[in-house]
Design a protein around this nucleic acid. Structure first.
Length: 435
RNA sequence: GUGGGUGUAGCUCAGCUGGUAGAGCGCUGGAUUGUGGCUCCAGUGGCCGAGGGUUCAAAUCCCUCCACCCACCCCA
């Protein structure tokens, strides 16, 4: 290459779009881990997977999540399709699941509908720790039952999942935000209680006072706290059915010994929530401390076209990106690569034999890596050790002449001659012994 | 959308009051012929985020822009 060429201006590097990122090892292994644990736990609780489109009509979220919410109002990636219809990248999946529930009349199938999902969601917010414009959620929804026991079982399932992932030290915050009428009465009560003090509160609270007084409750400004502490609590405004429902859920949690903290100030941001609302928080997450949130949304399915008697629902969404941060903070290590054997052939003329051996071992179910046969043995062994292989299979002219290989355990350095035909069996042993 | 912080080799960072760049790790090769994780040696690699200004001279001072991070709002 000439100097002129090397000095040519470099094309500007193409980079991932703001708020999106590439996930590679070791991080991606933890994502796989959460997903695997979730699948297993969900299976035990009778959930089946649903895969809904990433693209949806914008209208769906406007109707289900609420026109006035931040998510719909300013955070959706929405655009006009070629036929001029507004479509968007889904900002969450509960609305999609409810849409599918209605579209396929899933209530006509026997039993309660229990569905889980996993996949990317999109919100156009300013990125920060644990918050991305494309992020992954795992969630589950129970549709067609309003029994308190369903709420209880869902929370129990979540505790199981958290523990399986090493996050048993998370905290469950629990509240009931009542039904629509309760919320209206409470909102009025809040406004009335705030009226004398509102001028002394922070600018955000003054704005919330107008738009959504419930939000005043989770204001973090120190000076406002005494005022907030004196405000009436939602729980005093629940009507009898809502109060009974909430009390039944709490009784079950107490009976079964599952911990939670009553959080009368916990408010959910999406319009469709009713009654039970919850959040699991974890200390490792900085400002975005919600690992997972959810609640009951009776009536959502009806708003999308389901018959009233089948429109009860409850679900949650778990932020995988945040979950993984918490797992790392909890010292959860990524699982090792698990290469069973690294084949080191000595010289290019032995490469075909090495490839054949690798093929046989792989057919036997073993993870195998083949080294560069032109490199000297020391180098190949070094790479073998550093890629995390459990053992090296040395294939030199001497060994091959006897239809053998030298099997070297990389942890201990012990090695011995093994017949090529017996290698698969030998390599499979330690894997079985592993916990 | 608003605030604050940071931008120097692939990564983590040094470069004081201006004189066109360094370390550690990594990567490549070597320390006699087939044995790694240690050590030693050598090599590789940077228009010092971009553009403009001040100056004899700028990674270092000034301005603008951009990117990333953190926080607010809100949420998973």
């Amino acid at each position: 290459m000439s100097k002129a060429e090397s000095k040519a201006p470099k094309a500007t590097e193409i980079r991932a779009i703001k708020g999106t990122r590439d996930l590679v090892a070791p991080e991606v292994l933890l994502f796989q881990e959460v997903e695997a644990q979730a699948r297993e736990v969900f299976r035990r609780y009778g959930f089946e997977e649903i895969r809904t489109p990433i693209l949806e009509p914008t209208e769906l979220f406007a109707r289900a999540v609420g026109e006035e919410t931040d998510i719909v109002g300013k955070e959706m990636f929405t655009f006009l399709d070629r036929d001029e219809r507004p479509i968007c990248l889904r900002p969450e999946a509960t609305a999609s699941v409810a849409r599918a529930y209605v579209e396929h009349r899933l209530w006509e199938r026997p039993g309660t509908t229990k569905l889980y999902y996993q996949g990317p969601m999109f919100r156009r917010e300013r990125p920060q720790k644990g918050r991305y414009r494309q992020f992954s959620q795992i969630g589950a929804e129970v549709l067609g039952s309003g029994l308190p026991q369903v709420d209880y079982e869902l929370l129990e399932m979540l505790w199981t999942l958290l523990r399986a992932c090493g996050l048993g030290d998370a905290e469950l915050l629990l509240n009931s935000i009542g039904c629509e009428a309760d919320r209206r009465r409470y909102t009025e009560a809040l406004r009335a209680a705030l009226r004398p003090d509102i001028e002394r509160m922070c600018a955000d609270c003054r704005r919330r006072y107008e738009r959504n007084p419930l939000r005043v409750l989770d204001c973090k400004v120190e000076a406002d706290q005494p005022i907030i502490a004196a405000l009436p609590t939602m729980l005093d405004y629940l009507d009898e059915p809502c109060r009974a429902h909430f009390s039944a859920v709490r009784t079950m949690l107490d009976e079964q010994g599952l911990p939670y903290r009553l959080a009368p100030r916990l408010v959910r941001g999406l319009d469709y929530y009713r009654r039970t609302a919850f959040e699991f928080v974890h200390g490792a997450l900085g400002a975005q401390n919600a690992l997972l949130g959810g609640g009951r949304y009776d009536g959502l399915a009806q708003a999308l076209g389901a018959p009233a008697q089948y429109s009860e629902g409850i679900g949650f969404a778990l932020g995988e990106d945040r979950f993984v941060i918490a797992m790392q903070a909890a010292g959860r290590a990524s699982p090792p690569r698990g290469i069973a054997a690294y084949i080191a052939a000595l010289g290019p003329e032995l490469l075909p034999r090495a490839l054949r051996l690798a093929r046989e071992l792989r057919e036997a179910g073993l993870a195998v890596e083949v080294g560069d046969a032109q490199r000297k043995l020391a180098r190949q062994l070094e790479l073998a050790a550093r890629t995390g292989a459990r053992s090296a299979v040395i294939l030199g002219p001497d060994e091959v002449a006897r239809e053998e290989a030298t099997l070297r355990e990389l942890g201990t350095g012990n090695q011995r001659a093994v017949a090529l035909a017996a290698l698969a069996g030998e390599l499979a042993q330690p894997a079985k012994a592993k916990p």
